[in-house]
C-alpha cells in the first residue's frame, strides 16, 4: 500500500496539478510535414487533372498563327471566338460543311427520347421485379445483369439485322431503341434495388386499399422516388451523349450523333489541321456532360457508384 504513496509524488493534490503540463488541444501546425505532403500531393494531382481542360480552353481561344508559334500551355495573347463559331457552324466532315451543330441537334434528338424511354421501361420493370415478382422474373433479371458484361461487339450485328428487318436501321428511332436496350440492365438494377428498399408496408397498404399495378406505380412509387429518377437521368444523359460505338454503327452520316461527327471533323485527313477549331469542337461536345456533372454533384457520384455495379 505504501508503494502508492511513494510512486505518486507528483500528484500532491488538485492545486498542485493545475499548473502542471500541457493542457487543451494538442497544438497542430497548419504547415506540418504531413499537411505539406498531403495537400501538396493533392494539389499537384489536381493540376494534372485540370491541365487538359485548361489546354483545351486556351487552344480554342487562340488563332492558328499563335498556336504555331507558342506552346500549348501559354494563355492566348489575343482571344478569338472564331474557332468556336467555325466549329459550331462551318467545320467540315467529308462533304458536309455545316459544323457540329448538326451533330449537336442529332444528339439532342437521340438523347431525350432515349433517356425517357429507357427510364420509363426500366423503372416499371424494376418496380415489377421488386413488388410483383412472378415466376421466372428473377431468371430473366439475372440474364439481363449477366448480359451487361457481354462485349457489345458480340451483339452489334444481330441488332443490325433486326433493325433492318423492321426498317429502322440508320434512323434515329433505331438508335433510341438500341440505347434503351443497353441501358436496361443497369437502370433496372438501380430501380429494383431502390423499390426493394422502400417499406413493404406501404405497398401492402396500397393493395389493401384496392390500388392495382399501375395505380401503385403512379400514385405511390413514382412520387416517392424522385431522387433515383434524377440519378438515372444523370447516368443516361451522360452515357448516351458520350456514346460513340452505337452511333457509328446504327446511324448514317446525316444522323450521326455529336461524338461521331466530332471524331470525323478532328480526324479527317483532308485539309489543314485547325487545332483551335478542333479544340473548340471538342469542348462543345464535352460541354453537355460536363454541365450535368458540375450541376449534379453528389448525385453523379451516386449514379456512377450504381453504374459501376454493371461494369
Amino acid at each position: 500500500m505504501s508503494d502508492h504513496v511513494v510512486s505518486l509524488p507528483a500528484i500532491g493534490g488538485a492545486g498542485g496539478l493545475e499548473a502542471y503540463g500541457p493542457s487543451g488541444p494538442k497544438p497542430r501546425h497548419t504547415f506540418s510535414r504531413r499537411n505539406i505532403f498531403l495537400y501538396g500531393t493533392l494539389i499537384v494531382v489536381a493540376l494534372y487533372y485540370l491541365l487538359p481542360l485548361y489546354v483545351m480552353v486556351v487552344t480554342s481561344l487562340k488563332g492558328m498563327p499563335e498556336i504555331r508559334l507558342g506552346n500549348i500551355f501559354s494563355p492566348p495573347m489575343e482571344i478569338t471566338f472564331e474557332p468556336w463559331v467555325k466549329a459550331w457552324s462551318s467545320a467540315c466532315t467529308g462533304l458536309n460543311c455545316d459544323g457540329l451543330s448538326r451533330g449537336f441537334w442529332n444528339s439532342v434528338r437521340i438523347t431525350i427520347p432515349s433517356v425517357i424511354l429507357s427510364i420509363a421501361l426500366a423503372s416499371v420493370n424494376g418496380y415489377a421485379l421488386a413488388n410483383w415478382r412472378f415466376k421466372g422474373a428473377d431468371t430473366f433479371f439475372i440474364i439481363l445483369i449477366v448480359g451487361a458484361f457481354i462485349p457489345y461487339q458480340v451483339m452489334i450485328y444481330p441488332i443490325v439485322i433486326i433493325l433492318r428487318e423492321v426498317g429502322l436501321y440508320g434512323s434515329l428511332s433505331g438508335l433510341v431503341i438500341v440505347h434503351s436496350i443497353f441501358g436496361m440492365p443497369i437502370l433496372t438494377l438501380l430501380f429494383r434495388n431502390y423499390f426493394t428498399s422502400m417499406p413493404e408496408e406501404l405497398f401492402r397498404a396500397a393493395r389493401v386499399d384496392g390500388a392495382g399495378f399501375w395505380g401503385i406505380y403512379f400514385r405511390i412509387m413514382l412520387p416517392m422516388s424522385l431522387p433515383i429518377f434524377v440519378v438515372a437521368i444523370i447516368l443516361q444523359v451522360t452515357g448516351i451523349w458520350n456514346d460513340f460505338l452505337f452511333g457509328v454503327v446504327y446511324t448514317r452520316p446525316d444522323t450521326y450523333p455529336m461524338t461521331v461527327q466530332l471524331n470525323n471533323i478532328v480526324n479527317s485527313v483532308q485539309g489543314v489541321k485547325e487545332y483551335n477549331v478542333n479544340m473548340a469542337a471538342t469542348i462543345l461536345t464535352g460541354l453537355v456532360p460536363l454541365i450535368v456533372y458540375f450541376l449534379s454533384g453528389k448525385l453523379f457520384v451516386r449514379g456512377i457508384a450504381a453504374g459501376a455495379v454493371k461494369g
Binding site: 487533372y49 487538359p52 458520350n242 461524338t259 471524331n263 461536345t285 464535352g286 456532360p289 456512377i304
Partner: peptide, 14 residues
C-alpha cells in the same frame, strides 16, 4: 472525377 464525365472521344482528342 470530372474527366469521367467526358466521352472517350473527347478524352482521346484532347
Amino acid at each position: 472525377l470530372y474527366p469521367f464525365a467526358l466521352s472517350f472521344i473527347v478524352t482521346g482528342l484532347v
